[in-house]
Design a protein around this nucleic acid. Sequence first.
DNA 1: TTGAAAGCGTTACCAT
DNA 2: ATGGTAACGCTTTCAA
Lengths: 338, 338
Amino acid sequence: MKSERNLTLSDLAKLAGVSTSTASRALNNNPVIKLATRERIQALAKEHNFSINAAASRLRTQRTNVVAVILNLIEHTEQSINDPFLLKVVGDLNQALNDKGYELLLSNSFMAKDDWYNYFINSRRADGIIVVGQAKSEQKAIDAAKAGAPLVVWGDSNTQSNYPIIGSNNRLGGKLAAQHLIENGHTRLVFLGDTGHAEMNERYQGYLDAHKAAGLTADPTLVFPIDLTSQAAYNAVNETILKRGLHFDGIVSCSDMVALGALKALKERYISIPGEVAIVGFDDIAMAELLHPALTTIRQNTRDAANKMVEQLLNQLNGEPAFSDVIDIELVVRKSSV
Amino acid sequence: MKSERNLTLSDLAKLAGVSTSTASRALNNNPVIKLATRERIQALAKEHNFSINAAASRLRTQRTNVVAVILNLIEHTEQSINDPFLLKVVGDLNQALNDKGYELLLSNSFMAKDDWYNYFINSRRADGIIVVGQAKSEQKAIDAAKAGAPLVVWGDSNTQSNYPIIGSNNRLGGKLAAQHLIENGHTRLVFLGDTGHAEMNERYQGYLDAHKAAGLTADPTLVFPIDLTSQAAYNAVNETILKRGLHFDGIVSCSDMVALGALKALKERYISIPGEVAIVGFDDIAMAELLHPALTTIRQNTRDAANKMVEQLLNQLNGEPAFSDVIDIELVVRKSSV
DNA sequence: TTGAAAGCGTTACCAT
DNA sequence: ATGGTAACGCTTTCAA
């Protein structure tokens, strides 16, 4: 109930007839305390609904057991916050962090103060930072890492950086997507994505790899450097068809949401999929298999990625070296391409 | 840099040639301190990258300025974590909380320990709790509120409870959806949603209201009490058509994701939409307007809802009374129904 | 308008 | 195996 003053550790110790030190050790399962004593005190704590005061504990230990997760949204495209892929990553991170005894403080790049190191780490709000989404400018992450913030970024792991980056094998993903379309007889492939963005550029390189491997030359006018939103994709596909007619027969998209926008533009014009235009997405969000036609896509293993990000962050917290790493991806073939 | 010991408030005070008290007041913009002094010290803090130690501050003030947001997922349907609607709500809550100077600690009902009051409030991890998604059982919320946790729940605001519930006008939503279909000549309306769930039942009541208002009698065999997932909807629609043929001409869905599953089942059978079957969703997630056909739906104003939830939570934190409240909804007509 | 000092509740060092 | 005690860094009461 609200009224009764909160039990403190020393109150609990008194109830148990031991010192505060012993009570503290008992609750932390310190083996130096006799097992019987430990169990007795833990039971007493439960009985009295006692919880360690996290603020005091954090002040004393200088650790919070909290990790700040920053969604690095791209300015001016508020859409990206609606991308289901992000939620999946956040959900998996929450799971992975909880498994290791950490909690997740959610933030995003619009709201987080500029100085991530000071705001989260120096102020002891969190022990480390995980950034989801490599924006075009990574200055804040670079600064934070330079200041000494334990930090892991989701993004393109080939990028040179002073912090570990975990990400999918984007180049392979782009290659698998284009290769799949080429093998099914589509050769004029639109690339829907901004090659100025590190991850997207990797996918584009993979797209080029596939062309080269097939002895084809990619047409640079088929690259549409759009924002990562359905709306942008819809507009881009509409415009190019208006201007040049149906001058392509396949689309490699940088996300499933982007593919969705493209799909809509095509369907509105009664262009048959995959007959006239085949399309491949990226991410494999839940919705992909529910579209009509179901969307062929490159699945990113977010569970695995989340675990690896947390692992590399914990390495830093423990003073061990941490490294960038690549996550396997796989092509999931559905009706939009065959 | 990592090596240099952290500046404390008293260090900063020394640098400024004032007492710790003065420095503390200056950083908190306490008007009792001369403006010039305040500005001088704030500038000094910025210059030295000083940040108040949140742990110490929280211990001393007994406030965290953190709110725990718990995603109350329904066991056994892991899909719900993928519902984009949830991310939207979380994003808006983050925004609303930040506007009021609070941070968002993310949790979900699988991971949050059973005893929310103890874990979040008693332990001073957070000042209050916002629960998103009224599961069928609200026992944890009831217990937390009984224990004195400042608590607000997103759900059906008509439910009797010992805590404020903010939610959409679900009954009106259900009515608008059914009414819209009826007005467009559809009279055998499937209701896709579990009426054992408070919010869904309200929508169902609205669905019944619309029938009554039109002088129609709803057919109880058209109610499919499915889980809130696309897959469940897909299966339910497939099965009923297999068993009974196309014995309905409209669908009122309990979420856009559910509508998506239904849509897929219909399209696979080449049933024309909205010609043979018209369909209305619920939520208005970003994807709704991008489906083909674009999905008519009931828009939930999550921004407004987030602000109201935060408002009612702050009321409790300030010892003021807090109340349940209803959020306006609106019918958004698109191609899936006309 | 400013300063001194107590105290928030824990943990960990040093004793025993 | 357990206890005494200092210290973590801040805010706030009281005094000047």
